[in-house]
Design a protein around this nucleic acid. Structure first.
Lengths: 349, 349
DNA sequence: CAAAAAAAGTAAATCGATTTATTCTGGAGA
DNA sequence: TCTCCAGAATAAATCGATTTACTTTTTTTG
């Protein structure tokens, strides 16, 4: 008898050990009931004795279904996507799937490659948070390959997928209302010039709401090319010659930039300039001043996106729906009321 | 001829289309050279025309190797693990693997399950960042199952794996030296009481260095059970009756807590109390004051861990090595020099 | 030009599971 | 006792690739 150096027991080893066929073992393991109790327990015993664990990929191969869901996000370093993926992971597992997380590192090219890889992997579904650039290469691949998926956070034009996003427009309008009611008449919007639908929405909704409430409000918009370095110099140059009463940063890093630029120039916040940021972070409650900011409903986005995906996986072929989850404006210290200086706009208490 | 609703072309479809055998197609696709140019181009053409992409799992099944590396981290929400996994992802892909990221959500039980799942997946290797509790359930599973892997960030006792960690001891000793040279004689160490090797190391290294330099230094240690809620109340109670000249927080959330508790009580930092934190974050440069902190060498940890893993995957069976990557003490505003007031701890304004 | 050697190609086995189609049991009913 | 049938069990086919072992073709060489 030649000794064979077996790596790991397969279903056939279990079958041999339990003196039944592989088919029977398979049935027992999948809980099919047409197996005699005696055989069933023989199998269970053999599984225990051999410490057998089935190979999920071999199983999936035969079943022509992969119990994997993938999520492609632009970055893993930020709190937002960290929480989002973390939540999705739990949801996927509750539903019997494994979640595979990949980061496109804000690169269109990588995004396309990753989506294609997930297609190669034959995943059951894909949740895609597109990169900032709006061209939506990943979404296009998903569409062409007829993959089943859902888009989150950044909506890409003309995609035929369900989308789930924070309600940027409503939140931004609420910020506008809040600022104007607090007496602010000169606002700087600090954003990113890279074509980001989200930022554009935040700007336009703010403008529209502000102007519909109050005619006498000045809204400056500053768009930086690069999130980290560029917005700082742009802001610095702007503040050299402009005196807004409040800065509304449209992305998290901008809030950080504003805060530190205020400090660098000795601008007291909120006494000299108020600050509101889109996208909350844990540290914003500990800064001086703590930062008033728009909290995105990450949990709701994750849950809704996942439930849409599940229903698509299970065959729902209805029209693509576009869901907006409401945000919360978290009031903190960085925003204060100011005396409205304009003659025309006397505020009423 | 019955029309068959084929989902996706397989290697056999390609073979048929190119009028060669599947074995030849396989050879062409894997770049084996013993194929005539004519056949090779026929195959390439067929691949293009059918838009064929091979199934990596079917391939891996036959080859008895999975080109997957997994990493299990305690959380994805933090900057530290976000950056770590992000970096590992790129490294894995450079080496021809896909990285599968999973979060144990700081749960021992989940950690064990995840490691076991990765074992079921037959991944080529696993990088594990254990949960805070030191029992090392995941590491034990890895050992028992003879998985190939590397441990990072938190070293678990008696494991037989390579480990890569920030050099907590050296960094903490440097903090001690810096504080004492800056005249501080009364330090509060703010940590977590959960058995975390890292925190314990930071404490003991600090104490040892401090006491070896200066006999007259008072070191208080405050350990909270739960990172978020508990450390705040503990700190508050402590500050009710103690007047350290500096707080050295041993974990990131503690730094945040200290900062906001200072503000709540009107303690001016750094004039009244200085602050140093272990584990840097982006926001720490924008707070007021900006926070002096220990920057962990995430990139180096990732790179070293990955290179160790690769060499283990490739058969290196040498003794387990334990690597410590040096940290950087980033000086900012929250730490200032004080007059050493030796006489029984009189606080000076 | 024929035989030997080298190169190229392929049918079939294989990886580890599931599913199909078939065979084997053990009773119930005639 | 024999037939028939439902219930269990299994051999073999299958998923989509790779590898082995063998056959065919081409080239080299005597």
């Amino acid at each position: 008898m030649t000794e064979k150096a077996k790596n790991r027991p397969s279903i056939h080893d279990v079958a041999k050990h339990a003196a039944v066929s592989a088919a029977t073992v398979s049935k027992v393991l999948r809980g099919v009931t047409t197996v005699k109790a005696a055989n069933s327990s023989k199998v269970h015993l053999a599984v225990k004795e051999l410490d057998y664990r089935m190979d999920p990929f071999a199983s999936d191969l035969r079943r022509e279904t992969r119990r994997i869901i993938s999520v492609v996000v632009p970055e893993l370093e930020s709190e937002f996507f960290g929480r989002l993926t973390s939540r999705l992971e739990l949801l996927a597992e509750e539903a019997g799937y494994s979640l595979v997380i990949a980061s496109s590192h804000e690169s269109e090219d990588r995004e396309r490659q990753l989506v294609e890889r997930m297609h190669d992997w034959r995943v059951a579904g894909t949740i895609l948070a597109p990169v900032r650039s709006e061209r939506g290469t990943g979404g296009t691949v998903m569409k062409n390959r007829k993959m089943t998926g859902v888009l989150v956070d950044r909506v890409v034009a003309n995609s035929s997928f369900d989308t789930v996003t924070a309600d940027n427009a409503h939140a931004s309008a609420e910020v506008a209302r809040t600022l104007i009611e607090a007496g602010h008449r000169h606002v700087l919007l600090l954003g990113l010039s890279e074509v980001s639908k989200n930022v554009r929405t935040r700007i336009s909704a703010f403008k529209q709401e502000a102007e519909s409430i109050c005619g006498e409000v000045t809204i400056d918009v500053l768009l930086a090319e690069d999130p980290s370095t560029d917005s700082r110099t742009a802001l610095a140059q702007y503040l050299d010659r402009n005196y807004p009463s409040v800065v509304y940063s449209l992305f998290q890093k901008g809030t950080l930039t504003a805060l530190s630029e205020f400090r660098r120039r000795g601008i007291r916040c909120p006494q000299d300039i108020s600050l509101v940021g889109f996208d909350d972070a844990e540290w914003m409650q500990a800064t001086y001043p703590s930062v008033t900011s728009v909290v995105q409903p990450i949990k709701q986005i994750a849950e809704h996106a996942f439930s849409r995906l599940l229903s698509r996986i299970n065959g729902d072929s209805g029209y693509a729906v576009c869901r907006l989850e409401p945000c919360l404006l978290q009031q903190r210290e960085s925003l204060i009321n100011v005396e409205p200086v304009s003659l025309h706009q006397v505020r009423i208490k």
